[in-house]
Design a protein around this nucleic acid. Sequence first.
RNA 1: CAUAAAGACCAGGCCAG
Length: 351
Amino acid sequence: TYTLNLLLSSIVKLKCYSAAIQLHMKMNLVGIEPDLCTLTILINCYCELGQVDHGLCLLGEALKRGYDPNQKTFSTLIKGLCEQGKGVYALQLFENMTEKGIEPSMVTLGTLITGLCKINEVGLALELLKKMSNGNCKPNGVVFSPVIVALCKEGSVDRALNLFSKVITDPSISPDVVLYSSLIHGLCNSRRLSEAIRIFDDMTSQGISGNVVTYNSLIHGLLQNGEWKEARKYFDEMVDRGISPNIITYNSLIHGLCQNGQWKDAKIYFNEMVNRGILPTVRTFNNLIDSFFKEKKIGEAFELFELMIKTDQKPIENNRCTQIARQFQEGKFSTTESWFKEMQSYGQFPD
RNA sequence: CAUAAAGACCAGGCCAG
């Protein structure tokens, strides 16, 4: 059974959920009995396949076999219920487990809070947090970041700020880089960059250093706000501090620089990224190609389009620049009129 | 601490407004 679980676990890591379920059924026929861990893995599989009901049946099976479902079993189900939009049932299950004498762990609480936030039930999440902070087990820092993210997303940035200041002044909670980054990201997306930077500086002075995600949010936010020089400053700072930019950094940077008309720099970063061994994704290509078309750099755009195809990437369908590039490929722009027309759809007039 | 559970970052298209 131990070996079976090991195997199931790696199958799940590959996201082959139905394969895992089938394997379990076969092994069951051969007489290998599932333990609680097996069942928890399978519950997760059913949840991922959108079949929470089957997951609940497995909880029943666990009970029938005399197993005591633990925090992990319940967390898995709670997550599944939330992902199906059944936040109320998730809350019920959370309360049920408490009644049964299984103390929810921080992870269980975090799972529930995250699940509720992701289905726009921030209200329920906040209510639950309030109840929990009056109880015996105080929420840790982790459970607050999904709430902050959700509040920002729904536009209640000020409420997020409020909650954040309560959290960081609470002596029983030690804020971490994720908590700060969540707020920084929310502020960036609301174009409140000076506040984002202030929080970033606060974080640094608290001895918490930003990581690649923190910098990504800032760089992206600055670029969306037209502050591309600032964005490059943070990019340099990040590299100076020994933080390696990742594909998301480069995609944000390239896209943002293009939007700000800095396509030459964008191309430099594209080359830098390749030199660093970071493989451009189809997004990277699309951003650059799109921008080259807009800049009427047809040759460069087409060169990249071919490079994209050479390096494995499938062009994005339903996309203006893919369509135009294809038509180039097929030699459809033999007439100036057709080209003219296509380029007009870009809001540009060919020279 | 083991085989199972929680938080932050990137383009476009479509639909809704």
